[in-house]
């Protein structure tokens, strides 16, 4: 079950963080913040096959596990990061990748909202985006049960 979805901007500013089925939000802020270091670390490692520079995968896979949660990461070409926290022990990786890709599509559509100023790294308040992410999480949680 996905417990938290976060979008972090280019300069590591939190743009969006929502928790699902958990009472407290604060500790997820902490978790997401910690995971950014891992994202950075993963980004510096290039796939060994690519001596010639080729586009890298955006999906970073499992960042690290904690006692209760597993944290997954995704980074776009524009350095926007998506962090997904789940309490499932064995998440099928293609499913998580698909979830991140869908989230990316929602984000891209949200960016095209004329009321969203991308250069100011505004907090995402779009009700449409919030609702769509919630639906996405719900679908994922139902599928993984």
């Amino acid at each position: 079950m996905i417990n938290c979805v976060a979008v972090v901007g280019k300069s590591n500013a939190p743009l969006f963080l929502k928790t699902y089925h958990v009472p407290e939000t604060l500790k997820f802020h902490y978790t997401v913040h910690t995971s950014l270091d891992v994202v950075e670390e993963k980004c510096t490692i290039r796939a060994p096959s690519s001596t010639v520079s080729t586009p890298q995968d955006m999906y970073l896979g499992l960042l690290y596990p904690t006692e209760e949660f597993r944290i997954y990461g995704y980074i776009t070409a524009t350095k926007t990061k998506f962090i997904v926290v789940t309490d499932d022990v064995d998440v099928r990786s293609p499913l998580m990748e698909q979830f991140c890709k869908n989230l990316h599509t929602l984000y891209v559509n949200m960016v095209c909202n004329p009321f969203y100023a991308i250069e100011q790294e505004q907090k995402i308040e779009s009700p449409v985006f919030i609702r769509q992410v919630e639906q996405l999480v719900q679908r994922f949680n139902e599928g993984s049960r």
């Binding site: 955006m58 524009t78 891209v108 960016v111 250069e119």
Partner: peptide
């Protein structure tokens, strides 16, 4: 134009992959 370009880049890199080097 700058704002439009930023948003277009966000859109068009979606299925392209992560590019890190300026040459790429």
């Amino acid at each position: 134009g700058f704002r439009v370009g930023q948003k277009l880049a966000e859109r068009y890199t979606k299925d392209y992959g992560r590019i890190t080097e300026p040459m790429e």
